[in-house]
Amino acid sequence: MRRFLVLFFLLSSPLMAAELQLRNIGRFDGWKENYLSGIGLVSGLANTGDSARNKTTRQALANLMSRFDLNVQDSQITSRNVASVIVTATLPAVSRPGDRIDVTVTSMGDAKSLVGGALLLTPLKGPNGRIYCLAQGALNVGGYRAESHDSLVQQNHPTVGLIPGGCTVEQGTQIDPQPANGLLRFVLNQPDYVMSASVAAKVRKTLPQLNAVSRDAGLVEIQLPQYVAPDQLVELIASIEAVRVEPVNQIKVVVNERSGVVVAGAQTVISPIAVSYGNLRISINSTSIVAQPLLVINSPDTRASITRDSTIKATEAGASVITRPGNTVADLVALLNAQRVSARDMIAILQAIKASGALYADIVVQ
């Protein structure tokens, strides 16, 4: 029976809610990360790479050898020490040649494990087809796989690896800090009208020389002074990002069915409600009964008869939970845990309470 681990964020009073800087709750429009990808080869595997059936790996390895004046047909390659992989990385909004970023490597063939392998030089391209960085290095795989005589032991996913700092930026990305018409557009990570209006008001109060206007739930426009010297623009943008504002807490209950974790705020209150549930269990037991003939006659037609006796038993174990005024999600989960409720039943109960209007929070099931 899976038990639930409940985590609660204790915010007993508004004074305990810490103010956050604007750079922690949003970004300026145009500042975004860039995704890169490429296809490469991982070598050095201990007979856990792609099999000979994978023509992509054999052809890629043959093409690699041809660059070093080794003419080998792909049909002659049978080694399982090489695997074809997909390489991905995230390029920051501002980067320069020589910067190093992390790389994720995932198997794209039938390799069993990438443990002990090293990624060969792989160019990573952006959506526009241009090469932005080169990846290479030894893989760090947080798992393992051992197989012998039809016995298998596996931990995590050994076909996914990470190379910390394994990608060197060849072509950087820059963003012009000078906004068009002197208008900065600040975008909230989580759109909310209350938060958007609060950000605009706090910017006007902290930096009176700026005019901030909330355009919608996720956008705040900040009008800069008519003339800002280039050497002062960076300091002004840094001052805007450093403005502190009190966040608006969105009440949510997050339930992870796989791990059995419930995350909720301590202020998540449940109205008085009664919850009842039950499980119907049916068990069928079958026994064989052998009946011998009363009079034994020397005849080929004389045989013992076998009959089956089946017993069907149905049991229904039910329980009920009653919440009182002021009860929270923590109290409800504790009561349901005491009743040994499964993960699926826990999610169904929370969703039913939400549908009845007794739970004033959004439920997020992962």
Rank of each mutant, 00 (worst) to 15 (best):
A18I: 14
A18K: 15
A18G: 07
N24G: 13
G26P: 03
D29Y: 07
G30V: 06
W31F: 14
S37D: 14
I39T: 09
V42M: 00
N54V: 13
T56W: 08
T56H: 03
T57S: 08
L61Q: 03
L61S: 01
M65K: 01
S66F: 10
D69V: 08
T78G: 09
R80W: 00
V82G: 01
V87T: 05
A93E: 07
S95Q: 03
S95Y: 01
R96K: 11
V103L: 04
V103D: 04
T106I: 05
M108V: 13
G109W: 01
A111L: 07
S113T: 06
L114E: 07
P127E: 07
A135Q: 05
Q136G: 04
L139S: 11
G142I: 04
G143L: 01
S148L: 15
H149G: 15
L152Y: 00
Q154K: 11
Q154W: 08
V160H: 06
G166Y: 04
V169L: 02
E170H: 05
E170D: 02
Q174D: 14
P177Y: 03
Q178V: 09
P179M: 10
F186S: 01
V187D: 02
Q190R: 13
P191E: 06
D192S: 15
D192C: 07
S196L: 12
A197W: 04
A197K: 15
A197Q: 13
A197S: 09
S198H: 04
A201T: 14
R204V: 06
K205Y: 00
V213W: 00
D216P: 12
Q226D: 11
L236T: 11
I237N: 00
A238C: 00
V245R: 04
Q250N: 14
I251N: 09
K252R: 09
V255L: 12
V261T: 11
V261I: 10
V269W: 07
S276L: 01
N279R: 13
S286I: 13
T287Y: 04
N298G: 02
S299H: 10
R303F: 08
T307C: 04
S310F: 08
K313E: 05
A317D: 15
A317F: 11
I322L: 13
I322N: 14
T323N: 12
P325S: 04
A330P: 00
L332M: 13
V341F: 02
A343I: 08
D345E: 15
I347H: 03
I347R: 06
I349R: 06
L350D: 03
L350N: 06
S356K: 13
S356Y: 06
Q366N: 14
Q366K: 12
